[in-house]
């Protein structure tokens, strides 16, 4: 089992004819994902390998029964693409695009409250259920199928690093999900923790947070109140200076709030197993999850 994406995922790639869209659509196919369609307005009727390209999401869904989408359009068109997917009943909308204005994302986020779709991202590497389905830009080969650990992270390459360490320890993953490095994101830590808690094959969760906002603190409280499964936590940015945006739009300590120290303290208080040294995170997980 896994969460959000699996063998039943029928993937639509929005922005499939662009350089990134094309490259990653092929990578997903190579991993075994069922990529059923792509969209690029004006390029309907073309094909990327065997994948049909449509002008609209409506047509793509109608012809291929796509139920999940991966978005590669530039930031200025991202609101349009997300809402188009949502309005056509796409269940999981994974937005890879980085650099969407915060006011646009606020509007999208408030709109998403009225529809049934789940938005993942933006500014994220996507979701992978190892061995089953990859909807994202992560290197597939570092993952180990079969579980039993779920991974949630606000970052991209940092996630690859921790997943690689798990795999080297012989620990497989049920699903790894990058929720994104922006201040406003669709699916948050709590949504994923809740899904992993319900997934029978997931025995424990590794959550990778970073400075900025209070999502990790809120997740910690959720964990102590609602979860039986063990959660290991890592927070990046202990040395980050206040008031500076550390690459991710959401990674900023402002007004003394959102520091790594504060997050770690709250997570520890709520029973999260904190590893402070990234170099030994794999070993730390092996220790915690073997019990």
């Amino acid at each position: 089992m896994s969460i959000f994406v699996d063998k039943n995922t029928r993937l639509l790639v929005q922005g499939i004819t662009g350089k990134e869209g094309q490259f990653h659509a092929r990578q997903c196919v190579a991993y075994g994902t069922n990529v059923v369609a792509g969209t690029t307005p004006g390029k309907g009727g073309e094909k990327i390998d065997d994948i049909p390209v449509f002008n609209t999401v409506a047509e793509a869904v109608d012809k291929t029964r796509a139920n999940c989408s991966m978005i590669f359009v530039p930031p200025q068109y991202a609101t349009d693409a997300i809402v188009e997917a949502a309005d056509n009943g796409i269940e999981i909308i994974v937005t890879i695009t980085e650099g969407i204005p915060i006011l646009d994302m606020m509007k999208v986020k408030n709109y998403m409250g009225n529809v049934r779709s789940r938005l993942v991202g933006p500014n994220c590497p996507g979701i992978i259920s190892p061995g089953l389905c990859k909807v994202g830009i992560m290197p597939g080969f570092i993952h180990k199928p079969g579980g039993p650990i779920g991974v949630i992270s606000r970052s991209g390459t940092l996630t690859y690093e921790v997943v690689n360490q798990l795999t080297l320890q012989g620990i497989g993953q049920t699903t790894c999900i990058g929720i994104g490095g922006d201040p406003i994101i669709g699916t948050n830590f709590i949504d994923c923790l809740d899904a992993f808690e319900r997934d029978p094959d997931t025995k424990g969760v590794l959550m990778v947070g970073e400075i900025g906002g209070s999502a990790e603190e809120e997740a910690a409280r959720f964990i102590s109140e609602n979860m039986k499964k063990k959660v290991v936590g890592f927070i990046a940015g202990l040395t980050a200076p206040p008031g500076r945006r550390m690459g991710h739009a959401g990674a900023i300590v402002s007004g003394g709030k959102g520091t790594a120290q504060e997050k770690i303290a709250v997570m520890k208080e709520n029973g999260v197993y904190i590893c402070e040294d990234l170099c030994t995170l794999g070993e730390f997980c092996a220790e915690i999850f073997k019990q």
Partner: peptide
């Protein structure tokens, strides 16, 4: 020098844990 913001932050932290101080992000 690191690829990815999260790994870059974590790398600065590793330098600190190793007893030195990062010159940059």
């Amino acid at each position: 020098m690191v690829n990815g913001a999260g790994l870059a932050m974590a790398t600065m932290d590793i330098i600190k844990l190793a007893g030195a101080k990062p010159a940059n992000f």
